[in-house]
Each structure stands twice: as C-alpha cells, then as structure tokens.
Write a protein that binds this DNA or RNA. Structure first.
Length: 602
RNA sequence: GCGCGUGUAGCCCAGCUGGAUAGAGCGUUUGGCUACGAACCAAAAGGUCGCGAGUUCGAAUCUUGCCACGCGCGCCA
C-alpha cells in the first residue's frame, strides 16, 4: 500500500538524518501515525513529525525540512517541496504531506476495485483475530418474562460484535446464560398457579401487600402461558381448581415452574431469531448444579483458603484481589447467591478452552466486575481474560417525549418495539451509538421513512445502486428524445466482466477532473471498510459499522449526483459500473454485519 | 459519601495514538428533477468543546479540582 511507502520514506530519511548526526539524542524511531489531511489540498496522506521537536530543538517546520533533506531525490524544487516517482511531497508546519501522482493513484484504485469484485462477500475478511477462541455472552435475561428494550440493545450489539469478530478471524461462540436456578423461578411458578386458577373462573388474586407482591410476576404475559398449561394438563388443572389450594403442593409447583420457564424461554428464543440474533448455545444455570460444578468450585476455593465463615454465612475473600469487600457465597439459609453460580459458570467457560470471555452487561451491574475478576484470579486464571462491556441503558421516547418505565405504566417490550419499528431499524438504532452512551431511542424517528432516518438513507443507497445495475441490462426510456433505448449490456456480459475483471479503465474516466475527484473519494471510502472492520473488532465497538455505512452512503449519493454512470460509451459505462458493483458489495456486507437487510428495491 | 459513565451547534451525536481552519445528521433559510430512484444533492446560518488550573512547541483529547446529569454501592437476580 502507498500509505506504508510514505511511512518508509520518512523512516528511512530519519534514519539517514540520525546517521549523519543531524538529529541527536534520538535512539528510537517513533511510531508515526499516517493521517488523511482534513484539507485535501495538502495531499492524500500526511505524517506529523512535530513530536521530534524536542530532539531537534527546532520549530516543527524546520524539523520537517531537516528530515526531507535526506529523502534522497535530486528533483528538488525547494527545501519544502520534493518529487519522487510516486509522490509530490510538500511541507506545511510539522506535516510532511504526500500527494499521490496520477499513475500511482490509478493502480491503487484499480487494485482496490479488483479486490472487492474478486472477494465479493469476503471483502473485509482478515485474520487479526488469529483464530482465538472467544466466547461472547450477552442478553442472558431471566426466563421470567418478555424482553425489555434494554435486552434488545445487548442482542443487537452482541450479535453484531460476534459477526464483526468472525470476519476478523476470531473463533467466536455466542452463548446465552439462563438463570433458571434461583428463587425467581419459584416466584414464576407461584404466579402461574394463580393465573391457572383465574383462567378456570376462580376468584383469586395476587396479594395486595407490597412486600408479598414482590415475589410474584403480575404481568399478563402469564395468562397465555396459563391457557396453554390448562390445555396441555387438563386433569391437573381441574384438580387444582377443585381443591383451590392456597399454594400449589411441591410436585405441582415444580411442574408449574418448569412449564412457565420453558414457555418463557421458547418465546425468548423465537424472538431472538426474529431479531437476527443467533446463539450457539443456551446455557442453563441448573446444569452447573447438576454437574456438580458449583460444589467443585467451592471446594477448590476452600482448598486455596479463599473462603471463611462468618455470621452463619460463607464468604469469599474477593477483597484480596482488589474488590472493595468480601462477598457472600452461601447464605445463612443454606442457599447460594447469584455470584456463586456465576463463578462456576465463568470457570467452566475457561475450562471449555475459551481464552477471551466477553460479557455484555448493563451498567447497573458494574459493581460485579471486581468480584468476577477476583474469582477468576482466585481460581488460578488470568483475570484479564474476562472483558466486561458495560452498556448504558436505553431511554425510549415518542415524539421527543420520554416514556418512563414506571411500575404502574405498562411496559413496552422489545417485541412491541420490533412490531412497531421493524427489525432493521431497531437493530440499526440499537447499535448506532457507543454503548458508553445512554441510548436515546425515539420510536417515531426510527419509524419514519424520511431523511430523518439513517437506516433508510443507507438502504436507499443500496437500492439506488442496484437500480443502476438493473438499468444497465434493461431497456431505458430517453425522456429527452422520447424514445426507448436498448439495454447497454446483456446480463451475462456484465457478470462476466465483473467476474473476470482484471483492470478497470479508471484512466478512461480521468479526463474529467471533477469526476476523477468523486471517483477517488468513493474508492477511498470503499477501501476504508477494511480498517473499520478491524477497529470495530479490536475495540469492541460495533457502532463504527453503522457510522461507516452512513458515510459510505453519503459518499455514494454525492458521487451519484455528480457522475453520470450509463452512457453510449460502453467502455466508460463498464468502468463506472464496476464502481457501482463495488458499492453494492460493501453496503450489503456492512448491512449484513449489523443484521439488517439490503433491499434491492424499496 | 464512594465507584463507574456522560457533558462538543437549537436537538441527536462523530472527533482515529495530543496535531493543520473542531465535523456529520436532524431542525432552520435558500437553490436544484425534461435521461441512470428527489427516500437524493448543493449552499448558508449556527461553537467560551460544562467551569477553573496544570503538563506540552501544541489540549475537545492527558493530569487535577470543582459543577451538572445517569447508573450502582444487598446474605436480590
């Protein structure tokens, strides 16, 4: 790449300068950052050498002069301008600016378009992940009710991150942890019991006592579940109704719990699929207990002297590993805390061979990080292997007015939102912002099919580009002369061209300087996709993909408005169509990464 | 009180490892469809980068002290 050549030129010159004693006290070549100048009149790439000022004891400009003196080309216009075979180099302030000469630029742009057309959906694929085994655990909602809006954010972010990391060569495994062992399942079963009785006409209600009602799920989603239960267990339901038991007996209770749990879980699963979020595994908390893993973890911690008893409870010395205080592992009533199974769960993940554990949690769980890492370290593993991505919550608003999720107001579920807004728009909006920011989700905006909505802006670009490709192989209407023009290409002709594409005739296009500029900008944007993907994976920031897609769409729309694609000149049209095809490929690839569709018509 | 996060244009947000005149979108004003999709494009207006100090040749970016907002600080999950 030309970028690296710029870097090499500067580094080589700098080394010569040091060798000649022009710069003293500098022993290590600094890590130069290659930038794209904000003002393109300066050039295509720039390297800032101001960081060397402290060694040269000169101004940034003089420092730069001092370096380019050693680039070694004779074709020197002045002490601030030099020509190489590929670049025009000029100095402004502490910047060494590189302007690529036309021939060099052709070959780079050609090469890039060729790469995109050849690799197609694989464009952007790389191996920065080095096949590392990564587990991404996200959503992990309790199986006690429908998803709320926040779960949607983790689903969209987690699945997009998984897609991006796969593209970067990580061996990604996606898991959903089901908390099906705690007391909340008992509460769920007890709540279903009441609904089952109600459905059979018995006058019974949830307790009114504010304390007691906390152990019930009063949402009406259990009514459906109750109906299903009665249908599948008619005899038992009748018995329950006749006896009108104040509480279900243990056997029945277990059955109720199990039924409600699996009903909730299957509803969650199907919603996730609908939402383009595909897990490799749903890991049941109960399976940890069944396999004795919890006990095994406790034994191991005990052997290492990390547990102690106090006030009738069992404690873990997490404060030895940086947690602010020790944590209870086993309560006085003999039951385990949530943390206990989580310790076993993460221990198990590492034992399954994953070297990087990514957990996506709501910001309200941030206090958990220290104790989780403490447990990993206490069990002899590297706490750095756990990466917790803390996400801020979602604020839902309708027409600018915030919807408060009070206890009294009816909850808006993720499913409601998807039905209202659609999968594509919901996913796009959910990952549009960095998870460090509270997400402002305006239902009306996301629904709107106008210029306020970035999802449609991007999809429209894709549809528009597809439309041009269609027009190239279809008859067209010439409204100026009012006649029908024949198709420029046959479909196979065009496909063959893209498939066996060897050299785009960009230089054909170069006669028009304005067009050339637009073409260069467009191709550069397409090239950028590769680094965007890498950065999104490296920094766990899937929002970069949406940001990029909006930029690419904007670049394309602008390109479209100033460059005519189809014309009588077949060769010229072909060359331009190769660009359009590339745009289609990259837009579609990006939209696929974020789990949104790429419609060819809208 | 302590911990984490946020504070950039009227609104919602970018700003890459400290670097050139702080950038998009929406909204506002104005202009552009008689050939490829106007769900688009172009132009203008709009900023004490929360406030103060420090480090630096250079700070929206790093350090520190305040201020405001959000979340958390359970033998809940």
């Amino acid at each position: 790449m030309l970028k690296n050549e710029c870097l090499n030129i500067v580094v080589k010159a700098l080394k010569t300068a040091i060798g000649n004693g022009a710069i003293e006290n500098l022993h290590e070549i600094p890590d130069f950052h290659i930038e794209t100048p904000k003002n393109r009149d300066f050039g295509d790439y720039a390297i800032n050498v101001s960081c060397l000022c402290r060694y040269t004891r000169k101004s940034p400009l003089d420092t730069a002069k001092c370096i380019i003196k050693y680039i070694g080309y004779i074709d020197t216009k002045s002490d601030t301008q030099i020509n190489t075979d590929k670049f025009e180099i000029s100095l402004v302030g502490g910047y060494i600016n590189f302007k690529i000469k036309k021939d060099a630029l052709f070959s780079v742009l050609n090469q890039s378009i060729k790469e995109i057309l050849e690799q197609k959906t694989n464009y952007g694929k790389n191996n920065t992940g080095n096949n590392e085994k990564v587990m991404i655990e996200y959503v992990s909602a309790n199986p006690t009710g429908p998803f709320h809006i926040g779960h949607g954010r983790w689903a969209a972010v987690g699945s997009t991150l998984a897609n991006v990391m796969k593209l970067c060569g990580y061996d990604v495994y996606q898991e959903f942890y089901v908390n099906d062992a705690g007391n909340q399942i008992n509460n769920l079963g007890r709540s279903l019991y009441i609904r089952v009785l109600q459905e059979q006409g018995i006058k019974i209600n949830f307790p009114e006592d504010e304390e007691k009602i906390k152990s019930y799920y009063t949402g009406d989603y259990l009514i459906d579940c109750a109906k299903k239960f009665i249908q599948e267990n008619p005899e038992l339901s009748e018995k329950l109704a006749e006896q009108n038991l104040p509480e279900a007996d243990t056997e029945t209770h277990k059955k109720l719990c199990l039924f409600a749990k699996s009903d909730m879980l299957s509803k969650q699963k199907s919603l996730l699929e609908k939402f383009q979020t595909h897990f490799d595994n749903f890991f049941m908390e109960t399976s940890l207990h069944e396999r004795g893993l919890v006990q095994k973890c406790l034994d191991e911690l005990k052997d290492k002297g990390k547990l102690y008893e106090q006030d009738g409870a069992l404690w873990f010395k997490s404060s030895e590993y940086g947690d602010e205080k020790d944590r209870v592992i086993k309560k006085t009533d003999g039951s385990y805390t949530y943390l206990t199974s989580d310790i076993a769960y993460h221990y198990d993940k590492l034992n399954r061979g994953f070297t990087k554990l990514i957990d996506i949690w709501g910001a309200d769980h941030h206090g958990y990080i220290a104790r989780m890492k403490a447990s990993i370290e206490a069990l002899g593993n590297n706490p750095e292997s756990l990466i917790v991505l803390l996400g801020q919550l979602v604020n839902l608003s309708i027409k600018g007015e915030q919807v408060r999720m009070g206890k009294r107001t009816k909850m808006i579920t993720l499913e409601d939102l998807i039905d209202e807004v659609g999968v594509d728009a919901t996913r796009f909006w959910m990952i549009m912002r960095d998870i460090d920011n509270t997400l402002e989700f305006d239902v009306e905006l996301a629904k709107s099919k106008t210029d306020e909505n970035p999802v449609f802006y991007v999809q429209y670009a894709h549809a528009r580009a597809c439309s041009i490709l269609r027009n190239a192989v279809n008859e067209r209407q010439d409204t100026v002369n009012n006649k029908v023009l024949p198709a420029i290409f046959s479909l196979t002709e065009l496909d063959n061209y893209f498939d066996k594409y060897s050299n785009i005739r960009l230089n054909l296009l170069w006669h028009d300087e304005k067009e050339a500029e637009e073409i260069q900008k467009l191709v550069e944007k397409l090239i950028e996709y590769k680094t965007v993907v890498i950065n999104a994976a490296k920094n766990y920031t899937p929002y970069l993909i949406t940001k990029y897609l909006r930029e690419l769409a904007a670049t394309f729309h602008k390109f479209y408005s100033s460059v005519r694609i189809l014309s009588d000149d077949k060769e010229l049209s072909k060359a331009k169509l190769a660009l359009i095809k590339s745009v289609v490929i990259v837009l579609k690839s990006g939209l696929t990464l974020i789990g949104a569709s790429a419609p060819e018509k809208m």
